[in-house]
Amino acid sequence: MEIKREDILHLANLSNFSLSEAEIEKLGGDLQDIIKYISQLDELNTDSVEPTYQVFEMENVWRDDEILVQDANREELLALTKEEKDNQIKVPKVL
């Protein structure tokens, strides 16, 4: 399939990117090449084949419903943010 400029903008939006014009052009070409390559899967017959999403041999690993002690406390986690005030993470205005 052909990847158009509006497709790139749509994918950038889904990915939360704001791209420069140069990036739109470069990524457009790259993504076209990659999609062409991965589209060769069309050749493979997968009729009546069940999908595999994980190769871990177990399912539904349960643990007791207890609160575990976390390795990092609130102060340590808040120290990682750029701006903090009154135990809250500060961000630019929302509206």
Binding site: S15, E23, L31, I34, I38
Partner: peptide, 13 residues
């Protein structure tokens, strides 16, 4: 750039 390509391909598929 490669991170962006992979994220966008992921969102495409």
């Amino acid at each position: 750039p490669e991170n962006k390509r992979r994220i966008m391909i992921g969102n495409f598929v």
